[in-house]
Design a binder for these strands. Structure first.
Lengths: 207, 207
DNA sequence: CAGTTGCGCTTACAGTTGTTCACTGACTGG
DNA sequence: CCAGTCAGTGAACAACTGTAAGCGCAACTG
């Protein structure tokens, strides 16, 4: 993303910073952030415990950075999906497919977000909430542009956008829990059906 | 619930057991189960650390017991709500009101469930999942009895029930985060709208 | 009534935790 | 080239953790 030339030193620093983030993400697959120890992370990252402070004030701080990493780069993708051309059935298939691929590509990130969204660390919850609010706002902005949205109040558009965002997250989390290929197929089917039902409600909203 | 006569001794035991559960629930307001220490709990409950083992194998075990306490007694209520008489608008108001009151009466329980549903302790996640699956099944069973459900496939009924259950939990969690009375009012409004939209989709599901 | 059960207690141990401090040595800018 | 910066180190700290062993004493059983 941002490639300011970057001296050798800063490059190394960002490398170990990334090592810390990766190590933490790995450890967080089977515990939550509030129980993640600083020493535990540095051990997994292969550095001395005290070096941790060169990068983060605390594990909560690291958590906020992880939120950025997991959700920060997702905004263009969201907008592209909702704004997609095609009839509603095609859009649904595309959205579900996109979630599927994202979960398979970054399972640990998705798990982290689902877990810490309601987790025990306030700043992290706040960071996730802020990012999701941005998503909702973007989805809403995309919805406005549809002809079907004529006559919709701002509040109604927002509640629909929230419904979509929550549904998206719900589906992603269900994908994580699905172990077999059949289970994942079922999650896809159900998610598509639910999106279809919401779409129907949307078309008939203004009686 | 179950009042087998119960000697003095077992009564005292259940009393300290409850003290442990209450203490844990209190501590879990600002952390997650995976970081909850056994000593921490016993300290808050006012008993010696080792006495913990008389009641639970581990904190994960205690977590499972908390799931039972939080969700076990909720089944009759669920069924009564969904099966409620009245037109759909009345039912929506009743459902939202019921969630509101439940969250205000047992905020810590609701927070615990929302937090640990995707939390870092597998057995607890499993216990919550099982209870929610029961809820879903009950909602589905209630839906079948509506005349509007004629012609619905089993899978469609299940996906609708899942949508309702997830929505219910989502709303409950939003209530917790809402600090002011206005914020709570807004959550109510949005939840009602979303249920309305889902209801519309439901009525027009079979083309 | 004696004998047993079992809840909660104290003491103890080995590990782990977050944080401090002073340090080394490679990179950096003038 | 040289003085300064700063990412990472190692040792040390008090505080904390889960768990084991065994005791006292009140509540049960027959």
């Amino acid at each position: 993303m941002s490639h300011t030339p970057l001296g050798l030193r800063q490059a190394q620093k960002q490398k170990t910073r990334q090592a810390l983030l990766d190590a933490a993400l790995g450890l967080l697959e089977e515990q939550s952030l509030s129980s993640l120890g600083l020493r535990e992370v540095t051990r997994a990252a292969g550095i001395a415990p005290t070096a941790f402070y060169r990068h983060f004030h605390s594990t909560a701080d690291l958590g906020v950075a992880l939120v950025e990493e997991a959700l920060g780069s997702l905004h263009p993708m969201i907008r592209a999906t909702v704004v997609d051309p095609g009839d509603s059935e095609e859009r649904i298939a595309r959205a579900v497919g996109l979630i599927t691929r994202h979960v398979q590509a970054y399972p640990a990130h998705v798990r982290f977000i689902a877990r810490e969204r309601h987790g025990g660390v306030q700043p992290v919850r706040a960071a996730i909430g802020a990012q999701l609010a941005r998503f909702t706002e973007e989805v809403k902005a995309a919805l406005v542009e549809y002809p079907e949205s004529a006559g919709w109040s701002d509040e109604d558009l927002l509640m629909l956008a929230e419904l979509y965002v929550d549904q998206m997250l719900m589906t992603a989390s269900l994908f994580l829990e699905a172990s077999s290929e059949e289970a994942r197929e079922r999650v896809s089917q159900v998610a598509a059906r639910q999106l279809r039902l919401i779409g129907i409600g949307r078309r008939h909203w203004l009686t």
